[in-house]
Every structure is written in C-alpha cells, then in structure tokens.
Design a protein around this nucleic acid. Structure first.
Lengths: 224, 224
DNA sequence: TAGATTGTTAATCGATTAACAATC
DNA sequence: TAGATTGTTAATCGATTAACAATC
C-alpha cells in the first residue's frame, strides 16, 4: 500500500514475477505457494513474500496465492495497460527492430510516430507507424502530446534531444543510446538499456570461467 | 588480483567505468582522481576506489589514475579483445538489428554465422555474415567450434536449443529470448537481456511519478 | 616539504534470509 | 481440528560509505 519507498531491487523483480505468473496461468495453474514459486524462479520464499508485501497482502494463509489474481495485482502495480502515447527517435536498425519486436500495446504504450534524419527512411511505415523528419519533433509533440520517448540514437545526439523532449512534456525515456540520461534529469523516469555493457559483462564471465582464480589476469603471459 | 569472489554488483559497474574512461581519453584527459570521476558518474569516490581495488592498485597517491592505463586495465579485466567465435540464432528483426548495431569485434567477438528456420532468410548475408538453415547448427559447430551463442529466438525454442548448443561446446550465451537460462545451467556464462522487463520497469516508474504516494494503487477508482 | 589522493580498515546502511505467531 | 502457508518481525549477511594513515 505505502509504496513510495519500495527499493529498486524489489521493483526490478516485479516484471519477472509477472512473467512467471503469466506462464503459470497459461499452463492452467490456479494457485501457487511462495515456496513453490521460489523453486521455479531460483530465489527464496522469504524474498517473494517480502517483495509482495511491499504492496499488500495478496495471499491467504494455508492456501498461497491465486495465480490469476496475483498476476493482475502486479499488472496494476507496474501500471501496465495505462495508455501512454509514445514516440521513437532514431529509426535505424535497432529502432526498427525494437518497434517490430516489442509488444508495446500489451503494456499500454501506443507508438504514434517515429523520427529520423535519414531522408531515405522518412515517409516509410514500420508496423503501421510512419517515420517523420526529426526536425518536426517539436511540432509533433505540441500537436499529439506524447508522454514517452524511445531513444535509439547516437550518444552525441542524446543529451541535447532529451532536453528538447522534456521541454515538450515527455515524462519517460527508454534509452538505448550510449549516454547515461539518469544523471542529469530528476522527476523524469529513465530506463537506460546498455546492450554494450551487457555484452561486456558476458565477456568478463566467460573469461572468468577460463581462468577461475584470476591467475593470468594482471599479466597476459602465463608463467613459463 | 584475487578476483574469484568479486561481487556481481562490482562486475556490472566495470563496463560503465570503461565507457566513461574511453570518453575521457577521447577528450584528451590524461589523469583523473576518484573524486572527479565520482562526480561525473554520479557515485561516491569510495565506491570507485573499492571497486578498482578488487583487481589491483591502479592509482597513485597524490596523483589519481592515468586514464589510458586504467582503461586498458579494465579492458584486460573484462577480457575484451580475446577472440571468440560467435554464432547468432534467430535472424529475425531483433537478431539482424543486433548484428548490425553492436560492435562485436571491439570486444573480441567474431560473428561467424547466423541461423534461422525461415527459408526466405536463409542464404542472405547481414554485414558479411551468412544466414544458414537452423538444422545445420550441430554440423556447423563441429566444424567451426564457436564459443558463444546469441539467442534471438522465441522462448519455446530456447530451452531445448541451449542444451544442444552446450553439448556442442558453447560456453557463453547472450540471451534475448524470454526464457531465463541462468537457472538451468551452471559452469556456463549467461547474460539474459529482458527488454520486456526493462520496459515494464519504465512503466512502473512513470506510474510512480503520477501517483507519488501510492494512493489509488490498490483501487483504480479515486475516492469520490 | 606541503598538498593531494590513494589503498584499506572500520562503521553504517540496506537487502536478504530465517523464524514463527497468526490464520485460513 | 490439523496442516499448510502467509505476513511480519528479528537476525544475518553483504554492499556502500566514511575515515584516515600511507605515500606519491
């Protein structure tokens, strides 16, 4: 109920609970205990109960949780399904793939326009959504009042563009650029997706498997 | 130096340090103190020094850190630049975009083949890399011995395919499917990228900005 | 030498886990 | 009622921050 102070660690687990509950529901499972769910998800039953109780008591002693009800509660907590007009800036490979790959509408996001500076892209439609000239963003925002922007642009462009978009009323950013938006803006929701960082982390972990005790780390050469 | 026990929190910050150091270096900055870097990155100087000292003393009292040297050290810690043959499974929109968008070679990944079941894609080349029929994966692995697989496939296919790939010697997965690989395999490096979870988290945070104290959370209707 | 800044230890803070009374 | 499982408090664990002696 009181939720202002729910930690980011908890929040980041919610979509995963949501995903697992959806699958349980799809498989016709009606009820689940925290113990059972914890085994499936690879975490502790305590943690699941703690997490859920940040938002309310959704379970029932001796029974567990009703899968469908809990799924719906988490949908509501996440704010899924609330309509939000959304624009995507940067209709390059990544931008177009994101558009076609993600189920925006399942979460309430309504993609109403894409923007790019590349003349060969302008005028094209991707999944029914038109690509406009980037210079028209301001005008478009004044007319349609989008609330969310997806940034698939080079980092050089991101800083300045974010300021412009905020001045036009954008409240949330899904940022795929290599620029960390979070630092500069407060009171605006930002979710940075750094695919490069993820790939580098994978690199570390593969490397770690190869030299388990960190030998040969500071020195490329193995000892003779 | 001793690194076996470096926590995941620290590891996940390394690529970000790397990114910032690269930018500093590109801007011709030669030295930096933990204090200065902490301000730029939005964290504490203590944390930076703690993190780096998991791997060695890269700084110098009274001076700080040499940007280029520290950048190179972190490259080495992450294992960037070590050649790793890589295959991508699922050459749909996302797979193709990832191929064209990511700088694999900068991190040592060598994309040597893509695979799909869609006949209209098979035979195409994306960025010089050919798309093969998925049924040939086993054969291909026996011949070329890739070490890393990028999964851009539906979750139904992921579980089974992972097992096959592991049996053919794959040691690391960059997983974009909606299936959580981590739970099932040990001794294999997995980096799950759940774009949907990230978008849901954004949803929560926008929603949070709208109703700051969690009022109207459990009950859609505002009180009359 | 004096000033700056590290490496490292100790203190604090927060997150996870364990335990158990409440209760379905 | 007896068994199961929650909600919640207390204990533990780990991560972050603060402090400071070492030293460039």
């Amino acid at each position: 109920m009181a939720k202002g102070n729910v930690s980011l660690s908890v929040i980041r687990r919610l979509p995963r609970y949501h995903r697992f509950l959806r699958e349980l529901s799809d498989n016709g499972i009606v009820r689940i205990s925290s113990g059972d769910l914890s085994k499936r998800m690879g975490l502790t039953a305590s943690q699941i109960r703690q997490d859920l109780n940040c938002f309310g008591g959704f379970g029932q002693q001796g029974y567990g949780y009703n899968v469908k009800d809990l799924y719906d509660e988490i949908s509501k907590i996440l704010g899924l399904g609330i309509p939000r007009k959304t624009v995507l800036i940067g209709a390059g490979n990544l931008g177009r793939a994101v558009t076609q790959h993600m189920d925006f509408s399942a979460r309430g996001f309504q993609l109403i326009g894409m923007f790019d500076t590349n003349p060969s892209l302008i005028g094209q439609k991707i999944g029914g959504v038109e690509i406009y000239d980037s210079s028209l963003i301001g005008e478009f925002c004044e007319k349609h009042h989008p609330a969310v922007a997806i940034l698939c642009i080079p980092k050089e462009a991101a800083y300045e563009l974010a300021a412009v978009l905020i001045s036009h009323g954008i409240k949330g950013f899904w940022n795929f650029s290599h620029y960390d938006l979070t630092i500069d803006y407060d009171g605006i929701a930002v979710e940075n997706v750094h695919l490069g960082d993820s790939l580098s982390t994978l690199c570390y972990r593969i490397h770690e498997l190869e030299c388990p005790n960190g030998e040969q780390r500071l020195n490329e050469q193995p000892p003779n």
